[in-house]
């Protein structure tokens, strides 16, 4: 039986409004997916879905297109950037929430969050003018010279020491995603109830033992959510990566060499795409990127449900 309160006209209007607005969001998302999939139909028809996905050639002249190098480029850059960013982000969150005096913690938290507000083109510029020369002169060049003398076999892995390539892109990407992982972890750590900490202190725990045995396990859901947000951000990041990664359509031969990600190839080639098939292939890459993001989010949500503790449990 419907209770009378739901019958009020104001409630009905509001409910209808919410439903319509909510459906609009879903509709727009579905429309985007359809638009990308439909736009990419020529490519999928020419190479087959799996053929396009697994194809390693990206050649506008020969009209051969495959997304595999970009898929690999996206997965490697995102995974490595996340691996690099995770511990510093978590350490910063613990330091800010547990160890630093309040004013210092607030200041550091603010500065970390500010990293998320910088436009990614600024990261790209910083990468080109600061990081790339550093990587070139202090990492790649010495390695190159050393290997030329002692281990010529390594030279194929190192490639020419230009500084532009996956290494620089990954480093900048790692820096860019730190605030996402860190701020969610920080919030989760702050939400751990005082009673939980006190219970562990009362057993004779030191501060670090309380963090390790109570705070981190309790906050693991939020920490993981931050990791996923950071990963999603890394997968989709376009501008800075495009500026630094070298934009090669070949399968990357090593982390020192040039590569491209799904997002970067779209940004890089869209304006100059010649012919219907190249354009369609780019849209198809966009469609695959959307599928990848969806898959990451679904898996993350599944894991998150199992990890969450306490009030936050879904």
């Amino acid at each position: 039986m419907r209770s009378k309160i739901y019958g009020k006209p104001g409630d009905r209007v509001f409910t209808a409004l919410l439903v319509v607005l909510g459906l609009t969001v879903m509709l727009v998302a579905a429309l985007m997916a359809w638009e990308l999939g439909f736009g990419g139909r020529e490519a999928f028809r020419a190479f087959g879905f799996w053929g396009f996905l697994r194809g390693t050639a990206w050649d506008a002249v020969a009209e051969q297109f495959g997304a595999w190098p970009f898929l690999v480029g996206t997965l490697i850059t995102s995974a490595v950037a996340l691996a690099l960013a995770f511990l510093p982000a978590l350490a910063a969150a613990i330091a800010v929430a547990e160890y630093a005096p309040r004013w210092l913690g607030e200041l550091v938290a603010y500065l970390i969050d500010l990293l998320a507000a910088l436009p990614s083109v600024v990261y790209g510029l910083w990468g080109i003018f600061v990081l790339v020369p550093l990587v070139r002169d202090h990492v790649e060049q010495p390695l190159f010279l050393w290997s030329a003398e002692h281990a010529p076999a390594l030279m194929g892995v190192l490639g020419p020491p230009t500084g532009i390539g996956m290494l620089s892109a990954v480093l900048v990407l790692a820096l860019m995603i730190v605030p996402y992982a860190s701020s969610l972890a920080r919030d989760a750590i702050r939400l751990v109830p005082r009673s939980q900490r006190e219970a562990m202190y009362a057993l004779g725990a030191t501060r670090w033992e309380v963090v390790r045995r109570v705070v981190l396990p309790y906050a693991r859901g939020g920490i993981f959510a931050g990791v996923i947000l950071a990963l999603a951000r890394a997968i989709g990041e376009t501008m800075a990566v495009t500026m630094l990664i070298g934009n090669s359509g070949q399968l990357p031969y090593s982390v020192f060499g040039p590569a491209a990600t799904m997002a970067s190839v779209i940004a890089n080639e869209f304006a100059e795409a010649e012919g219907g098939l190249q354009l369609s292939s780019l849209l198809a890459v966009g469609f695959l990127l959307m599928l990848l993001s969806l898959a990451v989010n679904l898996v993350a949500d599944f894991i998150l449900r199992r990890m969450s503790v306490g009030e936050g449990r879904k």
Binding site: S195, A199, A202, Y218, V309, G310
Partner: peptide
């Protein structure tokens, strides 16, 4: 303590 404080992950 006043309220039971089991560690929820253990």
């Amino acid at each position: 303590f006043q309220r039971p404080t089991p560690f929820p992950t253990m």
